[in-house]
Design a protein around this nucleic acid. Structure first.
Length: 449
DNA sequence: TTTTGAGTTGTTCGA
DNA sequence: GTCGAACAACTCAAA
């Protein structure tokens, strides 16, 4: 008999909670990854950098596992069908995996768990993707938080409520939060199932072509984290970590990064807490996937203007900071955080286009796309999210440029024709757009529409 | 139950 | 240029 560890959004061998548990289960562990055709077939393009990223990460793990005398089983198909095939091929006692909190994943895992249960096979799940799951940080009345600041306070209280003494390499000892302790997977590497390498499908075999998009490294310097608060808002500078895609697919450990953040930057730690915050919002309020978090905002009459949406997508709005952001996204699969806010505000408030359009476009293009964070960010930009701030906070693209790209470095990098006759005029005048937005929101929220 | 303080990231206007 | 108030009123969280 063997046990199987099922990789999904946790593509690493080190400090992997579920894998560590599996390796301690007493049976040889065969690692598995499934390219889920339900997900892949729904992607709009056959050149998807995320699929390529996953494929690259799997190749790396495959190499590590072969060096350990084992292998990574990589299959392609609908999860239920793949599992049925695997259970025909291997005598499986139990399956281990890390929990995934997105609605589709929850449903998929319920089905797989039922399928396994019919055959008497246990399905063990672990927390790995977040520091705290949705029911670990709750108000005193047992209900979920919907405002970030009190959530973050309770999050930190909980983090520091359990400490362990750790002996460092130089012999000194230090107290560290138990929740951030690494899972020592490598101690149990001898428990992988010993077998010949199993051939994995190529990118082409699962139906995809290389995207041409470069992947950021899974590392960030301590200097950057220390300077994060001072530099993160300037898109021309490399002041942000670019670790998003690695968090998304688990090629780095959230615990390790949180431990470093604790030592180096409160601001950076807060960003990691935001990740948990939006994950628990999605878990408790899954309707946010299609509906505004604040129900009253469902009555805003978004404009129906496909041509305007196309101009926004293409980076041809005539507002250089907006266009620079959209072109960076289209070219690299990444957009600087500050510019994500500006472009999102522009779409929802200047153009009065439905935030779900922008959300879907980012979902298609962003290498680091994460449902919970992307949805939370877009609802925030549209004013309909958990943020208590007023809806009349309309970003002025020119003011934002003055503050965050005063020398037009970022703009010139992505909009070389800026300042020449080839650059388009603004597609909508700022003052007019601002007033139209405020009037429309006000009416809708007063129930006059 | 009531009260109180506060809420990621902003802009505009007038003194 | 700089500063504070207004933008509106509401809901959340905790005491």
């Amino acid at each position: 008999m063997i046990n199987i560890f099922w990789f999904r959004r946790d593509l690493r061998l080190h400090d992997n909670a579920g894998l560590c548990q599996a390796l301690q289960s007493g049976l040889p562990v065969l690692p598995l990854f499934i390219f889920d055709s339900d997900i892949l077939d729904a992607l709009p393009s056959r050149q998807d950098a995320r699929v390529e990223f996953i494929h690259t990460a799997l190749t790396g793990m495959q190499r590590e596992l072969e060096a350990l005398g084992s292998t990574l089983l990589v299959r392609h198909g609908k999860p239920a069908a793949v599992w049925q095939a695997i259970l025909q091929e291997y005598p499986v006692q139990a399956v281990f995996t890390n929990r995934d909190y997105e609605p589709y994943a929850i449903q998929r895992d319920q089905r797989v768990q039922a399928l396994l249960a019919e055959r008497g096979i246990q399905f063990h799940t672990s927390k790995d993707h977040v520091i705290f799951e949705k029911d670990e940080v709750l108000k005193d009345d047992g209900k979920p938080y919907t405002v970030f600041t009190p959530y973050s306070k309770k999050w930190k209280t909980r983090l520091y409520s359990r400490m362990e003494t750790v002996v460092l390499e130089d012999g000194r000892s230090e107290a560290r939060p138990s929740y951030l302790q690494p899972h020592p997977t490598e101690k149990y590497f001898s428990n992988f199932f010993a077998c010949a390498p199993a051939p994995a499908p190529t990118l082409a075999e699962i139906g995809f072509a290389p995207s041409g998009i470069a992947f950021p490294p899974p590392t960030v310097s301590s200097g950057l984290i220390r300077q994060y608060e001072a530099t993160r808002n300037f898109p021309a500078q490399p002041g942000t970590s670019r670790l998003g895609v690695h968090f998304r697919f688990g090629t780095i450990s959230i615990r390790e990064k949180a431990q470093r953040a604790l030592a180096l930057s409160e601001t950076y730690l807060n960003e990691l807490i935001w990740r948990d915050f939006y994950s628990q919002i999605l878990g408790h309020f899954p309707q946010v996937v299609t509906q505004p978090f604040k129900p009253a905002y469902a009555f805003i009459p978004w404009r129906d203007a496909p041509a305007d949406f196309e101009r926004w997508c293409a980076g041809k709005t005539g507002y250089p900071i907006v266009d620079a952001g959209m072109r960076e996204l289209n070219a690299t699969g990444f957009m600087h955080n500050r510019v994500r806010m500006i472009t999102a505000s522009f779409l929802t408030k200047h153009l009065l286009l439905d935030w779900r359009l922008g959300e879907a476009y980012f979902a298609e293009k962003l290498l680091d796309f994460d449902l919970a964070s992307n949805n939370g960010g877009w609802q925030w930009a549209a004013g309909c999210g958990t943020d208590a701030a007023p809806y009349f906070r309309v970003f002025n693209p020119e003011e934002q440029t003055k503050k965050f790209d005063p020398e037009y470095k970022y703009i010139r990098r992505w909009v070389p024709e800026f300042g020449t006759p080839a650059y388009p005029r603004p597609m909508v005048e700022h003052k007019f757009a601002r007033e139209r937005c405020l009037a429309t929101y006000k009416k809708a929220l007063n129930g006059e529409l």
